[in-house]
Nucleic acid binder design. Structure first.
Lengths: 273, 273
DNA sequence: TCGGCGCTTGAATCGACGT
DNA sequence: AACGTCGATTCAAGCGCCG
């Protein structure tokens, strides 16, 4: 039994950097996470308002540890958003993590967008009460890899062609599937009005990330979320037949995701996701 | 007659930094432009492959000059995009311009997005020949202002409410209009095969920028585009009853936009824009 | 002399558009 | 419908330079 197996398919309560230090190097295929944004969100235990430079240092240490435990051809999907008044903030964080990793793709998780054809705004956003700032309708998902040249499975999350005459025109384009691009419209799942975790993302998001990295046949991927929160990443991993490792410092959220991952809850969620 | 009047409603052929130096300070309401990206595009005359640091310095000087001629409550909309292999590049440029200005809003010009509900991808993009990069479906429009607190007219480009019960719910929400947000879906206009300019943007884009800044009643706004290209900004200004100032270094594009701005062409364009 | 890095060059790409 | 053309494209090969 390998050492990494000890961590698999569990929700572990503790500090993620400390816990990652116990994991062997190059043992994880995919990391998907959304760290505390440090914009003063009220979590149960984590202090989300440290000085920005301190936060950046913390994120840099976090990035280094992720680098160590990730396989050479692994993918690290890092979700972070901004407040309207400082939209460069998330990029400063990304630059810190970029000290160890390389940004291979910059995906935009679009939560709200106005489609002019139908002249409606689809999706949701938190309205901002300001006469100078527009509402913020997106967050970043940075796709970090070690060398920036990991082959990804674009068609696994592909969309149909607009111009059907392109189907079958080239060797690879046998099906009606083409590259989705880097703008992913995924609205929030509104679970009966209130979300269990202030920063939880839709299950569809980690699902698409895992698929994009590529489900190698015959081998179970190991998927880690160091800030598991309500458990979306673990849930997506389970659904796709991967081994998950969930780390979360807050006991309340640990329990929450453990419940979510139990058989019955899984069924309920599958309907909506 | 004021000195700035000499420049109004003309397309001026020349180097924009030199020409701006001749303009009086605090005389322009809105600047909208898309600079050469410096990624090796073949323009007619401009060298689009200078060393990156040199390019950044140039952009910083450019930003300073924009700052000088802009009014205190003016808006500077700066469009810039990336190639998939370097998505942080545009932000480095923005940071340089940020040395004089403040980023008030970061607007995303979305050209292509996959909407999962209907399972289609709307909009267009140029395919990317890569197994590691996703297609790039957006560009930035940075809204710079001098102090970051210019009041904007969000509802002038508003969209209808999804939940109609919100109409009239608050004092300000008298009409069926709400904030569009910072994700603007504007697909390319397909102009008969070949685009006149490699980097031209849809007329709708500067139109929305001007409206967002706010058309003050009783006073004509002065709108400048220092890299006019094919003339979209001037055309939008004209349509909205503003005075435009177009600067463009390439003679060929100067003529092109002058034609575009002539009465007949204007009619033709109005149909499509 | 060999290998590694940077730059240049030409081939290959695939989705959109027009015929 | 099928096919030709064309990229604010990427990629690999090839050459020169240097340690």
């Amino acid at each position: 039994m390998k050492k990494i197996d000890l961590f698999k398919n569990k929700v572990i309560c503790g500090d993620c950097i400390e816990l990652m230090r116990e994991m062997p190097g190059k043992s994880v295929d995919v990391i998907i996470t959304s760290p505390p944004y440090n914009i003063g969100v009220k979590y149960n235990s984590h202090k989300d308002n440290m000085p920005f430079e301190e936060y950046l240092d913390w994120m840099e240490r976090f990035g280094k540890e992720c680098f160590r435990i990730l396989k050479e051809d692994g993918s690290f999907f890092f979700n972070i958003g901004d407040k309207p008044s400082d939209e460069l903030r998330s990029l400063k964080v990304a630059e810190r993590i970029n000290k160890s990793f390389k940004i291979q793709n910059t995906i935009n998780w679009v939560k709200s967008i106005a489609v002019p054809e139908e002249n409606v705004n689809i999706g949701h956003y938190k309205p901002v009460n300001s006469k100078r700032y527009l509402n913020n309708g997106h967050e970043f998902i940075f796709h970090f890899t070690k060398k920036g040249n990991v082959e990804i499975d674009k068609l696994s999350i592909g969309v149909p062609y607009q111009d059907k005459s392109n189907i079958g025109r080239w060797g690879h384009a046998k099906k009606d599937l083409r590259d989705r691009g880097d703008m992913w419209f995924i609205p929030y799942e509104t679970v009966n009005g209130n979300k269990p975790h202030p920063a939880m993302f839709p299950v569809k998001l980690p699902e698409m990330c895992i698929k994009l990295h590529g489900l190698k046949k015959g081998r179970k991927l190991v998927v880690l979320d160091p800030f598991l929160g309500a458990g979306s990443t673990a849930l997506a991993s389970k659904r796709l037949g991967c081994d998950y490792i969930g780390v979360e410092i807050d006991k309340k959220y640990c329990k929450l995701s453990q419940n979510l991952l139990s058989e019955t809850s899984l069924k309920n969620w599958t309907k909506n996701g």
